[in-house]
Design a protein around this nucleic acid. Structure first.
Lengths: 263, 263
DNA sequence: CGCCGTCTTGACGAATCTCAAATAAAGTGG
DNA sequence: CCACTTTATTTGAGATTCGTCAAGACGGCG
């Protein structure tokens, strides 16, 4: 249902990303988009790097692109060339199961780096679909590897990046393996809350960029179950939902629900 | 229930691993246990390395230890110092949820490398418990990082290692998020089958090292469900189970079940 | 304004969990 | 090696959660 719209946009992106000189655009646009001056520095790849390393990263990130809502940044099965840092906007990653079904494997927002699952095999294991108009920075992985051999701080960051992804997925495993629907949805909301807070947004009120179906897919639930839970939480005064706008009203109780203390 | 027995054994291991000179033991024991001559080379960390890199890896792996069944190699929350390669035997990794419950996060056998989830934070995110008497090689991570800066093949292997872990967990996410009990258990059996085959063992018949409860925990099911499914598969002639000895009788049908083709 | 994708809600059914009891297997101490 | 204890496994019956099917409401967009 969504891939139909995604195809032309993907083609458009291929064009934008094509390795051509980009004679003028580059220097003009870069002044304000250097990693070293990026507001997301603390979250993103350049976390904790010294000035020299930052300069080298600036050097490395030569491709930045806007993608429209619904566009596909990379597809499962295509060659892995680069990691991508989300500069603004958000996307989902989707893994395709054997029978063609897709499961939402991740929700990513500004400051996140995606594509790391392709490193091992050289082939992307999932596809990344934009949930709104989104700006991404490409980090050509060959160059990341080179730089990381020369600079141990960069190396450390590469390792952190990968390890963090392992930890993230492990948390989802826990969620899917041990929690009930109720707990899963609350855990999801609290995760979002925390991540918005890290980025300087409200941790109490935010807009869901995923449909009920996508949230369900991510949490291993059906969309009806997600919808029912939202309604119930609202009835119980724990949250307030208006379409995709969510307001967390009773954080203590929500946290109790996740921890399973609420019999 | 299992941690009670594990404590003393863990203490024993701490002792064995303690950074002391090991005056005699070392050279005597190493001749036959060099990575460069290890039969697991193709699977383990030294996969695809040239002679020089292999020598350097040999240099790096100075600690090998036997752990008894039930012993804990590392605990969640303790400092991360090294990756561990399983030389023989097997273990499970267990993540502890907020409410103290543990979920089995992985089953690891000879040739696997565990502990990579500690890299990012410097702290182990799970605990590793031996399922039988097991020999492990310690790869001090600081040295792995140093070596990987000097040798791009080693670097590539570190990345592969981490990325493979991401892919592994992603598969489990898919399993937990989209499959029914029946499919999960078959997927688990086929995964084991494949891995035993890679290691030169029978892919048709093997011994489960996990209890029904542990299998259930790993698959997000209750032990009764696992047991019932085993019984049912046996009735249907798909497998033969005798306690922990499993024989796969009808691979084609089993594969169909996982792929969901079996309505 | 009307279409279409999204969301909500209800009724029902199936998959899985819970509780319980019996059996089998593994470990322990003599 | 046996008797005994503990732990693991099987199996049943009933409860619960969540999924399925279906209908209608809402909301954005051409």
């Amino acid at each position: 249902m969504e891939s139909a719209a995604a195809v032309p946009l993907h083609a458009e992106f291929q064009h934008t990303l094509a390795p051509r000189p980009r004679p003028l655009l580059r220097d003009v646009s870069r002044r304000q988009t250097l990693c070293s001056s990026c507001k997301l520095r603390g979250l993103c790849f350049s976390e904790g790097l010294d000035a020299e390393a930052l300069r080298q990263i600036d050097e490395l990130v030569t491709t930045r692109t806007w993608l429209h809502k619904g566009a596909t940044l990379f597809r499962a099965g295509t060659r892995f060339n680069a990691l991508y840092a989300i500069r603004s906007g958000s996307c989902k990653t989707v893994v395709l199961s054997l029978d063609g079904q897709g499961q939402v494997a991740g929700y990513h927002m500004a400051g996140d780096i995606i594509g790391s699952d392709g490193i091992g095999t050289g082939v992307h294991g999932c596809e990344a679909v934009m949930l709104e108009d989104t700006e991404v920075c490409a980090l050509p992985f060959q160059q990341v590897e080179d730089l990381s051999r020369r600079n141990s701080h960069v190396q450390r960051n590469v390792h952190r990046l990968l390890s963090r992804e392992i930890a993230r997925e492990r948390n989802i495993m826990m969620l899917l393996g041990t929690m009930r629907a109720e707990q899963r949805l609350v855990a999801f909301l609290l995760d979002l809350s925390e991540r918005y807070q890290e980025r300087g947004y409200s941790s109490r009120e935010f807009v869901l960029r995923l449909t009920r179906e996508e949230i369900g897919s991510y949490l291993g639930l059906k969309l009806e179950t997600v919808s029912r839970l939202f309604s119930r939480f609202q009835r119980e005064g724990l949250i307030q939902v208006q379409g995709r706008v969510v307001k967390l009203l009773d954080l203590p109780t929500l946290k109790q629900i996740v921890s399973g203390t609420t019999a």
